[in-house]
Simulated scan of single mutants.
Amino acid sequence: MLERSAADILAAAEESERGGCVVFCVGSVLRGDDAAGPLLAKKLEDHPIEGWSAVDGGQTPENELGYLRRLAPRRLLLVDAAAMGLEPGAIRRLGGEHVATQSLITTHTLPITYLLSELEAMCDDVTFLGIQPAATEFFGPVHPQVLEAVDHLYQTLVDGADFSGYPFVG
């Protein structure tokens, strides 16, 4: 019987996902609506979509950059809660220029601008979608409209992953 090491198993799993499409979900399950990203990751884990894999970056998404580099995705969707001054659950596309010039919330160790620039350096097709939170207090509930936004994003992936229908934040 051939025994495989954990490194061999991980390498084989990564090999099957290399060059594919990745949903990189960011946020904290302990901070109310900031759980939007991890909730989408869980939904994708429970109900996979062919051609897409989920990476839950949690509160420290920069820790997943090495793993994402090894995956070398051809397409990457970054999903995070972002305070944009909109109604809870509103979904908008964001770019580095939006993140740098607006005071978007972040619960992460490093600035989201750093994360976004690293992702754009490793993948030519990066889309950053922010979901407007209602509240991000510790142990707070997830707002129903934020849950609807997560479901909407999941359905967008099922329907072919055309993110052009989401406007850029104004």
Rank of each mutant, 00 (worst) to 15 (best):
residue 139 F to D: 10
residue 78 L to G: 00
residue 7 A to P: 03
residue 112 I to S: 11
residue 12 A to C: 07
residue 139 F to A: 11
residue 12 A to Q: 13
residue 46 D to K: 06
residue 42 K to E: 15
residue 67 Y to F: 15
residue 59 Q to S: 15
residue 105 I to T: 08
residue 105 I to E: 09
residue 115 L to M: 09
residue 23 V to H: 01
residue 71 L to S: 02
residue 22 V to F: 03
residue 72 A to V: 06
residue 99 V to N: 03
residue 25 C to A: 15
residue 169 V to D: 04
residue 11 A to G: 09
residue 51 G to W: 12
residue 9 I to T: 05
residue 28 S to G: 09
residue 121 A to F: 03
residue 61 P to G: 01
residue 131 I to T: 07
residue 134 A to P: 00
residue 43 K to W: 05
residue 83 A to I: 15
residue 105 I to G: 09
residue 56 D to T: 01
residue 101 T to Q: 08
residue 9 I to R: 08
residue 130 G to A: 13
residue 96 G to Y: 09
residue 20 G to F: 11
residue 131 I to K: 04
residue 96 G to L: 15
residue 153 L to N: 05
residue 84 M to T: 04
residue 105 I to N: 14
residue 39 L to C: 09
residue 150 V to T: 03
residue 125 D to G: 08
residue 103 S to W: 12
residue 68 L to P: 01
residue 148 E to D: 14
residue 137 E to I: 06
residue 90 A to Y: 03
residue 133 P to L: 13
residue 131 I to M: 12
residue 82 A to H: 07
residue 75 R to S: 02
residue 15 E to C: 11
residue 170 G to E: 13
residue 62 E to M: 05
residue 98 H to D: 15
residue 29 V to H: 01
residue 121 A to N: 11
residue 148 E to M: 10
residue 18 R to D: 04
residue 60 T to R: 11
residue 11 A to D: 13
residue 137 E to L: 08
residue 31 R to T: 01
residue 118 E to G: 01
residue 37 G to H: 00
residue 148 E to K: 13
